[in-house]
Design a protein around this nucleic acid. Structure first.
Lengths: 169, 169
DNA sequence: TTGACATGGTTAGCCAGCTAACTACAATGT
DNA sequence: ACATTGTAGTTAGCTGGCTAACCATGTCAA
């Protein structure tokens, strides 16, 4: 994700719009504002996870495992749900297994398959980080009331729908 | 940035809220929606830049250089403005220099300093990618009218203000 | 004047993304 | 029965984040 510390000033936007007449100023400003806020939220999430010796990728794998009734899933399923490649998931699982937060259980019927299991230590780590996470998200979103949130999500969904349409065609 | 391919269903949110009573459901949903949309936009940006053999980090450096009147800046200034460490900037500049898009000019007065200069090839690459970029941003933001955009940015700014306040205290 | 500190940039080594290629195994069609 | 194809997971090698440590150079004060 782009780390935007220095959004363009009106003067800079004007300069660029001169050279590139296709520029839609308010579109660019909206686009960059959204990315900037998301980056800041992501950084805030990093700060939270770091307190508990976790990073986004590994934390998300633990959550995906906790969503399962038996705390077990296949690496490829985790990769799909986390939106990363299978190769990346192998690396994440290596780290989590080294820390004892998950374990690899070899399959019996199909010996290609491996089951990833959330260990007691993994669950304990989640029980430590999640209350902190929820607390922080609560505070981060506090500036928006319930009505604001509905409205905000609606605007996000309209952008999302546009993206799906563009990439679909 | 988190790759959220699988947002929690209401059932999952309920399950987690049972175990972690601090959870503020609408806050979490809003938070994840925002990150999800930003991720998708970032992916769309990646797709655009890839058409022109660029990645976000390197592209942003070129833009920062083009903002300067003489197309020149110090590595540390670029690092600050891009929001990355000086070490990361060294790597980005290595890649850009290898591709001939920037050049390092050694300082005369202070021999620690290096000036980074946007080359003609670098400017040409920007002139190739920017119209495509603006075109795509225009289309991505098309679902929102001018009024929507104002409102959206205002909501983003309120979140941003909250973040600054939290990290400041 | 020179010793201590500050600054600009690079290097080294870690993590986590990616693609492409590979291994092992399963399934399937002739 | 066996060759082909498909699938699950890993490995290798790239990029680009990070921190910490490390020159080299400037600066400043005793």
């Amino acid at each position: 994700m782009l780390q935007l510390r220095d959004l363009p000033t009106p003067a800079i936007l004007h300069k660029f719009a001169q050279r590139y007449p296709d520029a839609d100023i308010t579109a660019v400003v909206t686009f960059l504002h959204l990315l900037r806020t998301a980056t800041d939220l992501s950084d805030a999430l990093d700060a939270c996870l770091q307190q508990h010796a976790l990073l986004q990728g590994r934390w998300w794998v633990l959550i995906l495992l906790m969503r399962e009734v038996d705390g077990t899933a296949a690496p490829s399923a985790l990769a799909d749900k986390a939106g990363v490649s299978r190769a990346t998931m192998t690396g994440l699982l290596d780290g989590l297994e080294r820390d004892g937060l998950v374990e690899r259980v070899l399959g019996n019927h199909d010996r290609r398959r491996v089951a990833i299991h959330l260990t007691a230590a993994g669950q304990a780590r989640l029980d430590e980080v999640m209350p902190d996470y929820y607390q922080r998200v609560r505070r981060l979103m506090a500036p928006l009331g319930e009505t604001d949130r509905k409205q905000f999500i609606q605007l996000l969904d309209r952008i999302q729908a546009g993206i799906s349409e563009l990439s679909g065609s």
